[in-house]
Computed example of a mutant assay.
Amino acid sequence: MGRQFMARCNQCQTEFEVREGGGLDFYLLHCDTCGEEKVIRQEEVLEKIKKQDPAFSFNEKVEAIAGRCHDGHYRIKAKARCPNCQSDDYSAVTDANGEIRMTFYD
């Protein structure tokens, strides 16, 4: 299950949307350098994973299928990053009632 929310960078105070985690039929990866997202359909993974080296973990296989970003590598466990300063140090934005508005998805 994934989630989506607004965040504020703790370094430069930029507000931006964050999506974390995949869904029922897709994997969501982020670049470990710039934070760019990449979605890979589960169907694509199932087609290609059998051709991968059995010594690799499942996450390593999915990351190999995802390929490289122009700045780094797409990683399942990499966090989203601020679009302004590329920091992965952020906090969820709260509304006037002090609550975090978060959407969950499959």
Score class of each variant (00 low, 15 high):
Lys79Val: 00
Ile65Cys: 08
Asp95Asn: 13
Met102Phe: 00
Asn59Val: 10
Tyr90Ile: 02
Ala64Lys: 10
Gly98Gln: 07
Pro54Gly: 10
Cys69Pro: 01
Ala92Gly: 06
Gly72Gln: 02
Ala92Trp: 06
Ala66Ser: 10
Arg75Val: 05
Gly72Ile: 02
Asp88His: 12
Thr103Arg: 12
Pro83Ala: 03
Met102Arg: 13
Arg81Ala: 07
Lys77Val: 13
Ile100Trp: 00
Asn84Val: 08
Ile100Met: 00
Pro54Tyr: 10
Asp71Leu: 12
Cys85Phe: 12
Asp71Thr: 13
Glu99Trp: 09
Pro54Ser: 13
Ile65Gln: 11
Thr94Met: 05
Ala92Asn: 04
Tyr74Asp: 05
Gly67Val: 12
Asp89Gln: 13
Ala64Pro: 00
Cys69Ala: 04
Asn84Glu: 07
Glu99Gln: 15
Glu99Lys: 14
Arg68Tyr: 05
Ala55Lys: 14
Gln86His: 15
Lys77Gln: 14
Asp88Ala: 06
Arg101Cys: 03
Tyr90His: 05
Glu47Cys: 09
Glu60Phe: 02
Ile76Cys: 08
Lys61Cys: 06
Ala64Gly: 07
Glu47Arg: 15
Asn59Trp: 04
Phe56Ile: 04
Gln52Lys: 15
Glu99Met: 12
Ala96Lys: 07
Cys82Glu: 03
Val93Phe: 11
Ala55Thr: 14
Ile65Met: 09
Lys50Glu: 09
Val45His: 09
Asn84Lys: 04
Lys50Pro: 00
Ile100Pro: 00
Asn59Ile: 08
Thr94Leu: 05
Gln52Ile: 10
Ala92Gln: 12
Lys77Thr: 15
Phe56Ser: 03
Ala80Tyr: 00
Ile49Arg: 07
Tyr74Lys: 07
Phe104Pro: 00
Glu63Ala: 03
Val62Cys: 04
Thr94Cys: 03
Gly67Ser: 10
Glu60Pro: 02
Lys51Ile: 05
Lys51Arg: 15
Ala64Leu: 10
Ser87Ile: 07
Arg68His: 12
Lys61Leu: 03
His70Gly: 15
Asn97Arg: 12
Thr103Trp: 04
Ala92Cys: 10
Ala92Ser: 13
Gln52His: 14
Lys61Arg: 15
Ala92Arg: 08
Met102Gly: 01
Phe56Asp: 09
Lys61Asp: 10
Pro54Asp: 14
Ala80Gly: 02
Arg68Pro: 01
Gln86Leu: 13
Glu99Tyr: 11
Thr103His: 11
Val93Ser: 09
His73Arg: 09
Ala96Gly: 00
Asp88Val: 01
Asp89Lys: 12
Gln52Asn: 10
His73Asn: 09
Ala78Phe: 03
Ile49Ser: 08
Ile49Gly: 03
Ile49Lys: 11
Lys61Ile: 11
Ile49Asn: 05
Asp95Tyr: 02
Gly72Arg: 01
Gln86Gly: 02
Asp95Ile: 02
Thr103Glu: 14
Ala80Leu: 01
Cys85Lys: 10
Glu63Trp: 03
Met102His: 00
Leu46Val: 11
Gly98Asn: 06
Phe104Met: 09
Ile49Tyr: 06
Arg101Gly: 01
Ser91Arg: 10
Glu63Asp: 06
